[in-house]
Design a protein around this nucleic acid. Structure first.
Lengths: 183, 183, 183, 183
DNA sequence: AATGAATGAGTGTTCATTCAT
DNA sequence: TATGAATGAACACTCATTCAT
């Protein structure tokens, strides 16, 4: 092993996020993370003084990535129709979205029990709403955010996908009072 | 302990539900359940042949209770105003609601990983929507259900409660197209 | 269940012998036996006051069957050639013999540790030798019995079967001094 | 306990062999081994990732020792009489031999059920035969090996020892065709 | 700076046995 | 007579964490 491996820390965090997705917060162990990062067990305990810390930082690392990605989604949005399209995609998005969605719920549930994670979820909610609010105003953004959360969970759990039109209709209604695009 | 205790099975299930609320699905152990039910460890493994089975049945038992309780909520509803009031209460309801809400999310997350639980969540969603649909029609019921899920999660995670008016407004908007109460 | 099921006891013993073959003496449990006999667990503990007793009686029951079967093997033997043929078959006999051979070794090993089983193995050895001695005299019978035991064990463990000729030669040599068939 | 104990692994293996002798393969548990080695339970599971692995390595370790010892037995053998004497001693040898003999049968029986052990028994048989074959040629060695196995088992199980002369006669007969010592 | 060794607590599960019915 | 219910002990195994090197 090279003496200075500044990547090491991030390798471990990436692995931890993977484990979080696969096994959930409660299923995360030093050993699983070490194995996934292809790193000795001692390396994990060395870089993170406790499992709780590792978990927290993994969630933080994920939220950071996620927030950036969420923002990117809306870069090209110019019309209300664009917005609806992006949101529908967010809800109905295939297995690629599953990963991040699962992690989101995992974090929310973990935060219900561990106040130390509450700061993270609040920041995340605030940021998400801020992005949405650019298009909808703060009031609608709050409702929309909640609706998205519920729609995504239901989409993940459904055996057969909700018809795209139903999702669209729900979103359109939530956006109803939003104007300002001159349409 | 008396040898023959026909209640035993239900005592254990109640305890299991408690543990589910307190420690989550992943935090449930035979020993915690046994302690909470004031029953020897062997008694738990005797009545439930695996932890997974105990978990599943605990969730099922909870869903059954919850569904009945959910239905009760709407027994007195006669006007749209009544409906809104009940839903706002559902979202903003104090710590008494916290228990059941947490368990609901716990079940949803567990179901994401364990297909055996999927049947349960689907039945639950179907039943909930059916209750709502009596007032809103099936289409609105679906959106409303999702919105409620999101609002409740956000309410649980918020450090300071969302203003009651915001919740009400979100719900009213989701109900918007619903008419038929002659108002 | 009928009140008097005199078969019950033997059904259980048969099942116990099966379990002995499959899982070994140490792997025998009340539950496995009950399951294999398709009988309630309590029925096994009712008919046999302890697992050791069940084990002992199962072995005894097996030895009884086995001795009779062993004797039958030699009923048609009239020439020395017949005898050799029977013995070769005993050693090389296919999977049908495997069952009883495994159980024989199981019993021998168990008897090494449990003196209560010693009486059984001694009677068995005595009986086997007596059968052989009818053809060979007591002295040769003892050696032959030992040789058979070793040959059978090796045959069971070998990945590819010993050539039939080698087995035959070993047996013929052990029988060498045996005469009296006027050949 | 000192942190770094490079002997630890072998201490555990020695203890495991002891347990194998005392309680048999099926009676071996992590706890018994740990106690016999005077080592914490966790230490056993740390060094051996499963009980099956521990068992296998204990058997391997024993076979290695045993093979060396077996070879030593024959170092001084120069005449056929020497050879017979050594073999008789092998069969009739007192309680000191009991230990290794029991373990041998234990391994054979375990190998009947666990193919992973088959490689071990085969190597052992091959090595034993090779040693014997130096004096008898390969053909006789095979029979002799089987006869020894049977004689030893019967000797272990007998309440009163077989007369030394009977054992000797059996061995002499098996060696009968062996010549070449110019006697 | 980094890690293999180590350990005590705790996991799900199996079990022989007992007992009330 | 026969059996479902019950239980305490033991099992293999996993784990977070500590520490010597």
């Amino acid at each position: 092993m090279c003496r200075h491996d500044p990547q090491r820390r991030w390798r471990i965090l990436d692995a931890a996020v993977d484990v979080l997705v696969t096994d959930g917060a409660a299923g995360m162990t030093h050993r699983k993370v070490a194995a996934r990062a292809d790193v000795p067990l001692g390396s994990v305990t060395y870089h993170f003084s406790s499992l709780a810390e590792l978990q927290e930082q993994a969630f933080a690392w994920y939220v950071e990535q996620q927030t950036a990605q969420f923002e990117d989604l809306f870069t090209g949005v110019e019309t209300r129709e664009d917005l609806v399209e992006v949101l529908v995609e967010l809800v109905q998005g295939g297995p690629s979205r599953r990963r991040s969605a699962v992690l989101g719920f995992e974090l929310h549930l973990a935060a219900l029990r561990d106040p130390a994670l509450r700061a993270l979820t609040q920041k995340w909610t605030r940021d998400s709403r801020a992005v949405l609010a650019r298009f909808t105003g703060p009031e609608i953004a709050g409702r929309l955010d909640a609706l998205l959360e519920g729609l995504i969970m239901h989409a993940l759990l459904a055996t057969e996908p909700e018809p795209r039109e139903a999702t669209r209709a729900a979103l359109v209604q939530a956006l109803a009072p939003v104007t300002g695009w001159g349409e």
